[in-house]
Design a protein around this nucleic acid. Structure first.
Length: 546
RNA sequence: GGGCCCGUAGCUCAGUCUGGAUAGAGCGACGGCCUUCGGAGCCGUAGGUCGCGGGUUCGAAUCCCGCCGGGCCCGCCA
């Protein structure tokens, strides 16, 4: 539905008869997506350069430096062969052209030559082309065979942009059966793989919706009409429909949405394009309709859009659009739950550039580490222990990702993710197993709570543990209000540290009096309950043995 | 240029909204603890101008202003 999906579908439709989907479907399509994106972005720009080629020559040919000119002409002639073959030399050729015209630009600026702007544009295009070609080259090292197939198929395509636009129009209309099934085939297959992975780590979904249905069932139209009638839409010369946010800033509530107390030209947020000039919708447009769809019912108290921090502006625009379309009630219960992205040391993760680590890979590594740890403790590994390793691995990965405040950028670090010591998922699971182990020895026959003399729980560590256990409800409330699961992770870690400290120092079953033994048993049981509930909230499996 | 976020120990992070006493964890380093319920543990040591500079206050990591460093956004991509 989105343009990015259309890229994938476009390429898939071209090569589907030449290839087989191998391995996990989401991984395969993930690779194809990176390849498709890098090749399309490159080819589109190479086309542009091809078009600009003559004016390029003209600008440069305005004498002064004959040597530069000859050199440039040579490279451009090479470039004109684009379309017939692919070679990594493109990058070098373009870089050299770039060097020559940049040098040229220097001369021109000195002479106040008039075409500086045009040259700047060309330099920009070439820069981006080089960038994407470099991406493509790294992608094709990662997936050589598939990359070759894609490139050899796409290289003779012309007007890719137009074709993709057409593809989207047809899909959104819902009137083209083949195109419809193609899009949905791709999406379903990707989703299939994602669901499989998430299902393995205990994450399930109640419902999925097709974005395209929001267009076809006229919900997008409905909002658009409301906005149009209220005079919030402007149409530009190409026919794109734009939400007039600048005008809407006169309304105080809208300024509040953007966190502005006054409006000035400089700091005003930009208008939002809702409909492309080809008539198709954009992601944010569909998301406006989707927010309405989710939040229209009075039974719904809050609509949480959990999406990256980089979406802050579009999410504010979305909220403003709902308000302006007359759905203040829905706008008010809409929250953007923002989280920062995970980055690699040095480079940003980017699916579009083929720079990513799959969740499956991370789990696999964590699982190996877990098996290693299990082997340290018992010699032969049973099938059951493989399950155990998975539960531990999942606990480690989930905790690592969830225990950092959402607004903080997470720098990807294997050591932190595959940490099984304190302040980790496995540490919590281990502590839970220890507590369980005590109770198992008495067949979980916990003494009656109301006959206990709690006065005997009078050591500092016991008092602190009890005090913290009592805080559980307020911790949950706080985490919920702030949309901060890390608060629960931190809490679970804290009570576990306290429990371990207690465990090390004081015997439970062999306490010196019956009174103490019973009181401590009650405390262990309470701790176990609170930790189990915390782990459940975090989606980490409490383990009774490990 | 405009907007948002981050800056706390060598590293990864809590604590900032709602100001309060010697600023807390984990990792890493160093030193201890298995005749007792599971050592994936526990106890201890070293390590911090809370980015910098002003201001408000009896009191500032926390509130206000100004800088500096890093990230993100400002697309008819998502």
């Amino acid at each position: 539905m989105g343009k990015q999906v259309a890229y994938l579908v476009f390429v898939y439709s071209k090569i589907k008869d030449k290839v087989d989907i191998s391995g996990k479907s989401d991984h395969w399509f993930g690779a194809l997506y990176s390849i498709a994106n890098a090749s399309i972005e490159s080819l589109i720009r190479l086309d542009e350069i091809d078009l600009q080629k003559n004016s390029l020559l003209k600008i440069i040919s305005s004498k002064t430096d004959a040597q530069n000119y000859d050199e440039l002409e040579r490279y451009i002639k090479k470039l004109s062969k684009i379309g017939n073959y692919y070679t990594i030399d493109w990058i070098d050729i373009l870089k050299k052209i770039l060097e020559v015209i940049q040098e040229k630009k220097g001369i021109e600026e000195k002479n106040k030559y008039e075409n500086v702007k045009q040259v700047t544009a060309i330099i920009d295009t070439i820069n981006k082309t080089v960038e994407w070609l470099e991406v493509f080259s790294s992608v094709s090292i990662k997936w050589p065979k598939l990359s070759k197939t894609v490139l050899s198929t796409l290289i003779n395509e012309r007007n890719i942009n137009e074709k993709i636009s057409e593809l989207m129009q047809k899909y959104e209309s819902g009137e083209y059966k083949e195109i419809n099934s193609l899009f949905r085939e791709v999406c379903s297959k990707v989703l299939e793989g994602i669901k499989e992975t998430l299902n393995n780590v205990g994450i399930k979904f109640d419902k999925f919706d097709w974005e395209s249905d929001l267009v076809r069932n006229k919900l997008v139209d409905k909002i658009l009409n409301e906005l149009e009638q209220r005079g919030w839409i402007i149409e530009d010369k190409d026919g794109a429909k734009i939400l007039n946010i600048k005008k809407a800033l006169k309304i105080k509530d809208i300024r509040d949405i953007f966190g502005l107390d006054k409006v000035d030209e400089e700091s005003a947020p930009p208008n939002l394009v809702l409909i492309r000039s080809d008539g198709t919708t954009l992601y944010t447009t569909r998301d406006i309709a989707y927010a309405l769809y989710k939040g229209e019912s009075d039974k719904v108290e809050k609509v949480l859009n959990i999406i990256g921090k980089d979406q802050t502006l579009p999410q504010k625009q979305l909220k403003a659009a709902l308000y302006l379309a007359g759905y203040k009630n829905v706008a008010d219960k809409l929250f953007h739950v923002a989280y920062e992205l995970v980055i690699l040391p040095g480079a940003k993760l980017s699916a579009r550039r083929g720079r990513y680590i799959t969740f499956d890979e991370i789990l696999e590594d964590a699982k190996e580490k877990a098996l290693e740890e299990i082997r340290k403790r018992s010699t032969d590994i049973s099938l059951e222990e493989f399950d155990l390793a998975r539960d531990i691995a999942v606990g480690a990965v989930k905790y690592a990702l969830i225990s950092v405040a959402p607004e903080r950028t997470i720098t990807f670090d294997w050591n932190r993710i595959i940490n099984f010591e304190q302040n980790s998922g496995p540490f919590l699971q281990y502590t839970y197993a220890r507590a369980t182990s005590i109770l198992r020895k008495i067949n979980f026959e916990i003494p009656e709570a109301d006959i206990i003399n709690y006065e005997v729980l009078n050591t500092n560590v016991e008092k602190e543990l009890i005090f913290n256990l009592a805080r559980f409800p307020e911790i949950v409330l706080e985490a919920g209000e702030k949309f901060r699961p890390d608060i629960i992770a931190d809490y679970a870690n804290k009570i576990s540290i306290l429990f371990n400290s207690f465990y090390q120092r004081f015997p439970v079953l062999r306490a010196d009096t019956r009174e103490k033994r019973d009181a401590r048993l009650i405390m262990v049981d309470a701790f176990r309950t609170v930790l189990r509930n915390s782990l459940d909230l975090l989606g980490i499996k409490p383990l009774e043995k490990m």
